[in-house]
Design a protein around this nucleic acid. Structure first.
Length: 137
DNA sequence: ATTCTAACA
DNA sequence: TGTTAGAA
């Protein structure tokens, strides 16, 4: 099938499908016309790519991890390859780290939001309305 | 009618 | 990622 059909069947835009190819996630053949030709199995492959992206993996990581993935019906299985599981655990650790970082940012913001002025505090003056256009307007 | 590449109000 | 111009 060509890109238009794969796009319809997967709900992924043609632009994105070409992007996935650029990222080495898909490798369609080419007709002499230059048109891309996809295998029927690519429909499921695209779904798997979407799942991995939703899991927060980069296209680079997906490219090296996808070939090791096992498939159970529609679902992806990582347990087939032990080294793969290790890498995914590293990704999981990155996510846990990001969460910790965001929680700290949230706490810092909360401290500023709830802070109340002391009786003699010198309050900063609110800046005047800013105009994005010229004075002449 | 479809797809391709390249580029950006 | 969308959109789009210009060509095949």
């Amino acid at each position: 099938m060509r890109i238009g059909e794969l796009s319809r069947r997967t709900g992924v835009s043609q632009r994105l499908l070409r992007y996935y190819e650029e990222q080495n996630l898909l490798t369609p053949h080419r007709l002499t016309s230059g048109y891309r030709v996809y295998e029927p199995a690519d429909e499921l492959r695209v779904a798997h790519i979407r799942s991995l992206l939703a899991a927060g993996l980069s296209t680079e990581t997906i490219a090296e991890v996808l070939p090791c993935m096992g498939v159970d019906g529609e679902r992806l299985i990582a347990s087939i390859c032990p080294e793969l599981v290790d890498e995914l655990l590293v990704e999981r650790a990155r996510i846990a780290d990001s969460i910790r970082s965001l929680q700290e940012a949230q706490s810092a913001l909360d401290a500023i939001i709830t802070a109340k002025p002391a009786a003699s505090s010198t309050a900063a003056q609110a800046p005047a309305e800013s105009r994005s256009t010229s004075l002449a307007g």
